[in-house]
Design a protein around this nucleic acid. Structure first.
Lengths: 334, 334
DNA sequence: CTCTCATTAGGAATCTTTTGATAGTTTTAA
DNA sequence: TTAAAACTATCAAAAGATTCCTAATGAGAG
């Protein structure tokens, strides 16, 4: 027969009831070893696969998790996606990709449609504008975990890199090389602000003053950074080093420097954040702060699946420490 | 009440049967306008959302499509993903990401698990090693479309760029600049071979001979191309131009050339294929063949959804023509 | 030899929606 | 005025699993 076998077929072939088959499937109740082996054998013979839809309707898992991401075009988001998917797979969960394009309406549509499809939980990467929606989700006890950002004002799980420490380490690296005028490109987001706080603190800890005019705000694109750094380099207050709050902005800074006739790192040092694979390709290879995406992905899946399966009860804010990767875009100032 | 309202709640509130509500939901059967308005109003009041699982159990759509992709780390695959997702969203379908890592066992696991979850169809990008599985899927009438590759031996939908023409155009560009010794880096895959066929034909059409020693095979990575091109450049038969079958291998070629002390494009021209965003960032910016990913994504979703919804009956092989994008990595030979 | 208790298996309801068959009502035609 | 046709709306079964509750079986106790 061409149609998929059901629990009924298994029951009939094995000469037992569907109840028994179901119990064996779920490892619940008391079933004698003899019956169990018999049924298991039939299942194998028929190549029986339980219908996830039917079992989900009775309140069981769909083994699907929604992953909301602002824009997969940014290589760091693709990297998130990759590791989330790999670890989801390991734990038996599929990942439904939801690209929000930084659009609150799309966020809402995705959340609604994913709830309709009864996903088991949500992972929300990097940003989320629709706070009320997030609150509602948490309120209703939905398994949710933020990824690569935090919301200190909510009691919500999150897994991210310690952005403050990352910003601190990046700046310290430049300071230790001897730089004194260090510009930073930041973004108006939780992690952007945290990285800048780290930057400030590193400078203060060195007994220096923070030059507010050296703090630039941009979006997370190469173009944005290129523009803002280009403007800065035209002015008198030229820094000897630039800290891009992500690799893309650091690369934008390199391009802007080159266009201004400056050599990197001889005339100006540049450091990034994320450690995307691009870092090794650009000229010069970019010194950066490594975001341990594989570990973050593992942690977030473990945490969320723990919540889904009920083995993990307490809310957690997990923060992994980033690591400095020195390449050739930084050197002592001349 | 905290639980989601069901069709029963709507029926009770509206004083009709669930059958009526269902028919209104699906726009089937004959329902008087009065009842319809009344029920619609109640649905709105209760904020009723039908349970997709239950409706899927009765044989309706799950509005989910599985997208199988070898490795999202390659920027071109992330780009595929992005556009597939966007167009899926427009048509009301969610995309489940399945990363196969070029592993036949993972392919099989994904297919099995996605079938269990009753996805409406499959989009398989770039490669698929498990031919028997693909055949089975097609055999059973499952909506399947290949993306960015073809399987001429099967009757299966596919949407891809015309790789042959792309290879031809890339090579023609180099020939018209005056290059006579053009190396190519290919891959053992349908599109890899097609691009090389285009390369051969362009050379033959120019009345020249193809130098078999200039045809290199590599995987689709920067490192692979770097290694093979490095070897080639050490030998006597140094080409004046290289055609990388994708941008990553072209970039590998640029790196290898630089390491061999050659300047790009002065000493050696390089052209790629795909037009990933990296092309604008590398030094020099890479001349390449643009793969119209947005259009491809649109086409494949339209085609597959047509199959799912039954409005599209005939199998199709859609091929879009690629376009040459000239940047600074190519120039006439010295 | 009978009663109780543990153990194993099954009956039937349930989850939410869809659908083929059917009943009741109204309209049209004769 | 009545039979046939056309609408509307409902009943009940079905999709494939899960689960509460009950029944049957056998072992051990008195």
């Amino acid at each position: 027969m061409s149609t998929k076998p059901t629990i009924y077929d298994v029951a009939r072939e094995a000469g037992v009831s569907t109840t028994t088959v179901s119990k064996i499937l779920n490892n619940t109740g008391r079933i004698s070893d003899k019956t169990k082996q018999k049924v298991l054998k039939i299942m194998d013979e028929l190549n029986f696969q339980p219908n996830v839809l039917a079992s989900a309707m009775k309140g069981k898992s769909t083994y699907s998790i929604a992953f909301l991401i602002p824009d997969i075009d940014n290589p760091i988001y693709a990297k998130y996606m990759k590791h989330i998917e790999i670890h989801g797979q390991e734990l038996g969960y599929n990942i439904v990709m939801c690209s929000t394009e930084n659009d609150a309406a799309k966020e809402a549509r995705h959340i609604a449609s994913m709830r309709q499809k009864r996903v088991d939980g949500f992972i929300i990467a990097s940003k989320f504008s629709n706070v009320a929606l997030l609150e509602e989700l948490i309120q209703e006890g939905f398994p949710v975990s933020l990824f690569a950002h935090e919301r200190p004002e909510f009691s919500v799980d999150s897994v991210s890199v310690d952005d403050y420490v990352g910003g601190y380490e990046a700046t310290k690296h430049l300071l230790h090389l001897g730089h004194r005028k260090i510009a930073v490109i930041g973004e108006e987001s939780y992690s952007g602000r945290a990285r800048i706080r780290g930057y400030r603190q590193a400078i203060l800890d060195e007994g220096l003053d923070v030059g507010e005019e050296l703090i630039l705000y941009s979006d997370s694109t190469i173009e944005g950074a290129k523009y803002h750094v280009g403007q800065l380099l035209k002015s008198k207050k030229r820094p000897t080093a630039i800290f891009g709050y992500n690799d893309l902005s650091a690369i934008g800074a390199i391009i802007a420097a080159k266009e201004s006739g400056l050599k990197v790192p001889e005339d100006i040092s540049v450091i990034g954040f994320d450690n995307i694979s691009l870092c090794e390709i650009v000229d010069p290879p970019l010194t950066t702060i490594d975001m341990p995406v594989a570990e973050l992905g593992k942690k977030v899946m473990e945490l969320l699946v723990g919540k889904i399966e009920g083995t993990e009860k307490t809310k957690q804010r997990i923060s992994l420490l980033p690591k400095l990767i020195v390449r050739q875009s930084t050197m002592p100032p001349k």
